Simulated scan of single mutants.
Amino acid sequence: MDHAGSAGAGAGRHLLNAEAPGRLDACIAAAVPGLSRARVQRLIEGGHVLLNGEVARKSARVEAGDRIELTLPETGHDAAEPGFDLPVLYEDDALAVIDKPAGLAVHGAPGDTAPSVAGWWLARLGPAATAFDAEHPGIVHRLDKETSGVLLLAKTPAAQAALSRAFELRRVHKCYLAMVEGQPRPPHAVVEAPIHRDPRDRTRMAVTARGRPSRTEYRVVAGDGGRSLLEVFPETGRTHQIRVHLASIGHPVVGDPVYGRAGEGRRHLLHAWRLELPHPTGGTLRASAPPPADLLEAIRAIAGEAVASRYAAPPAVTCERGQPS
């Protein structure tokens, strides 16, 4: 396909001439470096693609000689600094580890201009951001908006692919801290229940027979009868998995307005405490971040200062280099 326009997937107008029949989205993705097919489909849906002068349909096909006009809107690649900073626990040529605060979305919804980790990361990468799809710039995994803790960000597409693969192969070991209602019995168990979007409420997830296999291990650390502190080890990575699984056994996360009870002035008390995984260039990366003040206060209330101090230890990241995985 002939391509007239700026190199790569930078913002602006791209004029393309189809050389052979095929799907419109596939032709564009093949012609413009850095554009994933998923992003092309979103651009088509948003009216940013003209086929022979008319707004294209997502299912459109092209014939040899068809003229395609693609307009890439200004995105986070060219955004100004977002006006805030995030704590970087570790950084090298392949990735960064940050401590995400509660209340900040990893990736905003389409059209959402609120601050996000993705927007901050694009601004921080500067010109290097053009190597990424603007929709998912180095995002390897996600934390819910109100969940705090350790989050990985890739600095190159190759690192993003390698890290994503590690998650897919379940080579990433995660430990969360969760304050839950009640006292789970037994104190150490695995919740294995399929998760799918709730058919009665599309904003929620639910345990349902038609869901994807999902597995979460938990261990009770301390409790006072009314609440318990858990260490939680999700083996799969479904949306809202920990919150859904704990609610399904009758012990929702404290302060969870979706799957439990909303607390006054509180967020749900869930924190990504520890992460261990193979580094893209070899060896093992281990990272941990202390829980924020609200969760530490809740831990002290039911478990005492000694337990709270153990989790309040300063952030720690080690990277033991070896041979590439």
Rank of each mutant, 00 (worst) to 15 (best):
L35D: 03
I249P: 02
L89W: 11
A109W: 14
R261L: 11
N52M: 01
L230H: 01
P324W: 07
S228Y: 09
H107N: 14
E181L: 04
T71G: 06
R266H: 04
D99N: 11
H173E: 15
H279P: 06
P157E: 08
A161D: 13
A178R: 07
R185E: 15
S36A: 08
L43I: 00
P314T: 12
V258N: 02
H77A: 10
T130W: 02
H173Q: 13
L169E: 10
G255V: 01
V55C: 06
V317K: 03
Y311L: 10
G226A: 09
G223Q: 06
R227Y: 09
G322K: 12
V140A: 07
R57P: 03
A64N: 11
H48R: 04
L72C: 03
E74N: 02
P127Q: 09
P73L: 05
I139T: 00
P291W: 00
D92N: 05
A20M: 04
L246M: 15
T147N: 12
A287M: 07
G260H: 09
E305P: 01
R227A: 14
V117H: 14
G211R: 00
G12I: 00
R204C: 10
L246G: 11
V221T: 02
A64K: 11
P280Q: 05
G283V: 01
V150P: 02
Y311G: 06
S214F: 14
A18P: 02
H268M: 05
R321G: 15
A114Y: 03
L24D: 01
C319E: 05
I139V: 12
R42W: 12
P324H: 14
A206F: 10
L143E: 11
H3A: 06
V232I: 05
I44W: 06
T147G: 11
R124W: 15
G126H: 11
V106W: 15
E264P: 06
H271Y: 13
